[in-house]
Amino acid sequence: MNLKPETLQRIDEVITHYPVKRSATLPLLHLVQEDAGWISPAAIEWIARKLELQPINVYEVVTFYPMFRQKPIGRRHVKVCRTLSCALTGGYRVCEQFQREFGCRTGEVSADGEVTIDFVECLASCGTGPVVMIDDDLHERVDAARVKALSDEIRTAAQRRPPAP
């Protein structure tokens, strides 16, 4: 595992929050995923050793919770809410339009490696549907024009990013 020093520091700190180390399983998975982008088999074994657990104890948690990923995704993660209130205001159309914008289907990585689109369950902002989360940020009342604008923003940010070393 090649984790950043600040990630390792936060991992050691968060373990102290609980009287039982196993409780830190979800926090560690979040920290590792934020750092590495996904949860690899090596990460599962590393977390298990860190928390004095068997790898299966961590693996079964990874497979249970929808937010943990066992494969890399695009650099940007677009999550469109699928559930009723958003669907009633156009959530399905929003999801379709994002897929057209980036030429990929839900769960896939776009050809340029930039985007993964997921159609997720309720994001708890039902009054301002349809809602979309792009990475950590929530976007509300997303209509066709807004999908276009958000997609353009993602493409512009990608162009501005310096090439990987």
Binding site: Y18, L26, P27, E121, C122
Partner: peptide, 10 residues
């Protein structure tokens, strides 16, 4: 008080 984050399970 500590904050503990879930991971998408209703």
């Amino acid at each position: 008080i500590f904050v503990h984050r879930g991971a998408g399970a209703y």
